[in-house]
Design a protein around this nucleic acid. Structure first.
Lengths: 337, 337
DNA sequence: CTGAAAGCGCTTACAG
DNA sequence: CTGAAAGCGCTTACAG
């Protein structure tokens, strides 16, 4: 036998409205009535049904969080950041990832439904492969939403991402100023990856800045996997470069592994650096010099932006495009001791 | 101006009931009416509000998932397993972790509220530190729920966990049979950890089985951290043991690091093995021999059990206590090449 | 095959 | 300070 607010009201001998007010501390209730109500509530162990509250209040107190996967190097940090700001505000997190369905487009449809069905009050989307088409659809929903990792410049949607350009530049700065490297190879990521493009831009910019000629022969496209790191490493082995700057840690790891196979050690015969500061990057031999991405901060910021959107009724505040700084992590693979 | 089922009904010129039936494919609707309805639905881009559906159907189509943290070594795998079975069944996942609040008891209250408020249809709880008190409370709710990693034997709640005992035994079997080690130190976890207890039990059992005397001096309690691995390693350095079997990978890593400091390499001067198969355990030097826990399978199984509970109305099926097998991962730190 | 009506379990103006 | 009533936006017997 289910116990509802109606029942409590009957037992106490007041109206549902009063019970509601007593429980929520909203509106006036005489201390005596309030006490009586609260006592019966406790006695019957009554807890309001959130489904009814949600419908009545037209909100769900939950935020959707879409991630590329759960097991990746830093998605956990994003989650943590999101949680840290959302939990104290009494929001719940609805998780959705790409690591389940074959077709990413299905996931995109699914996260769009999430908001169209009003199952969440806002949504944080980390979808590195999202196309502008999708982003436009999302923007059109006119709903609290922030994209992580893509700053769709010409689309009217909030974003928070990392300054890949300056991160890459900082790394180059270290390689050139501290190590005096000249022949710096760049192991790029996929051509259409926004991150890759920015990191490559940082590479080129630094080259120019320091008056080192850009040599297209020193650039190769990989696909962010360890395997492509290995393969491309082989190609570079003969061309006598000072350092391979891989656009992510996975590929850097591949390079290091390939070198080991040839009895070469990274940081001695040739330096190797990465980007991401993956969890394991400090554990490999030699520990990897890389660029740390502030995933935790990203999560926190994204969550704050969502709350901001939810709480400001002015449905047309200007779009927020935020950029966070990276941090250079110097370990040993660059040649430092 | 919000578009609801009532509006659609008006436009088409039928009742809400019919619209509902047409959309959901429930009950009879003439093909003509159905088509008309669906067309207007499309035209106005109507999507039913899930909050209303939830209330009306008295369910939420979401499952709570409680995890110790998001960034840990294998929680991502649990999530993935859970998602893989829940997503095709059209369930959503509400995530809650311990990595946010100072006080774990608060989180426990929070996840209990989750079900009391009926915000979810079922809940999967991975809470290694949960006491019996909490488990009893949860059991009393009489609600689809499964605990991961604790098999509260005398409590009426579904559980799925890993067979730590046999995992530990397998490791011992390898150390003794393959490597002929005799002086096997055990670096235990916290005394009150259920996992530790079982792993220690496997250790002792194997010793007995192989007629190796149990030497209490070869057992130390750590706290599952890298730091305690380092500290305890020092104590063992003089006592000339063949191998240190750490109750988890973190501590094994600590041991290896401490050895390095003394210019000792794990697997040569002294073997070191762990338990967990943490993400990075294959990357460290030497790669760690350890016991793999099937976290992905655990996630899948837990999710299946929840669905089972939800779908069988017989509210009193017998309690399910499942145990999954671990797998020995032989790498090099045990002395294997 | 379709509609009127009750119901899901709350909240919240409004009136007193 | 409190209650009656409308409303949130659906679903689902029930009757026809």
């Amino acid at each position: 036998m289910k116990i509802t607010i109606t029942k409590i009201a009957e037992i106490v001998g007041v109206s549902k409205a009063t019970v509601s007010r007593a429980i929520n501390g909203s509106g006036y209730v005489s201390p005596q009535t309030k006490e009586k109500v609260l006592q019966v509530v406790k006695e019957y162990d009554y807890v309001p049904d959130s489904k009814a509250i949600n419908l009545s209040k037209r909100k769900t107190a939950t935020i959707g969080l879409v991630l590329p996967s759960t097991s990746g190097p830093f998605y956990g940090e994003v989650m943590r950041g999101v949680e840290v700001v959302l939990t104290p505000e009494r929001y719940f997190i609805l998780l959705m990832t790409f690591n389940v369905m074959e077709d990413p487009e299905k996931v995109r449809k699914r996260y769009i439904s999430l908001v169209r069905e009003k199952r969440v009050d806002g949504i944080i989307i980390f979808d590195p492969e999202a196309d502008e088409e999708t982003a436009k659809k999302v923007a059109k929903l006119n709903f609290p939403c922030v994209y992580i990792g893509k700053n769709f410049n010409n689309i009217n949607v909030d974003t928070v991402s990392v300054d890949n350009f300056s991160g890459s530049y900082m790394m180059m700065d270290h390689l050139i100023k501290v190590h005096k490297y000249k022949r710096i190879a760049f192991l790029n990521g996929p051509e259409d990856s926004f991150d890759s493009i920015e990191r490559f831009r940082g590479y080129r910019y630094a080259l120019e800045e320091y008056g080192i000629g850009f040599d297209p022969k020193l650039v190769r496209f990989g696909d962010f996997t360890r395997k492509s790191g290995r393969e491309i490493c082989r190609e570079f082995l003969e061309s006598h470069v000072d350092v391979i700057f891989a656009a992510n840690d996975e590929m850097a790891l591949g390079v290091i592994e390939e070198m080991q196979k040839h009895n070469l050690v990274a940081g001695r015969e040739m330096a190797v650096v990465g980007f991401d500061d993956a969890m394991w990057s400090q554990f490999i031999q030699p520990p990897l010099t890389t660029v740390h991405q502030p995933m935790y901060s990203i999560g926190k910021l994204a969550a704050r932006m969502i709350l901001e959107r939810i709480n400001t009724s002015d449905s047309h505040k200007e779009v927020m495009k935020t950029l966070l700084h990276t941090k250079l992590i110097v370990r040993n693979s660059c040649g430092c001791k």
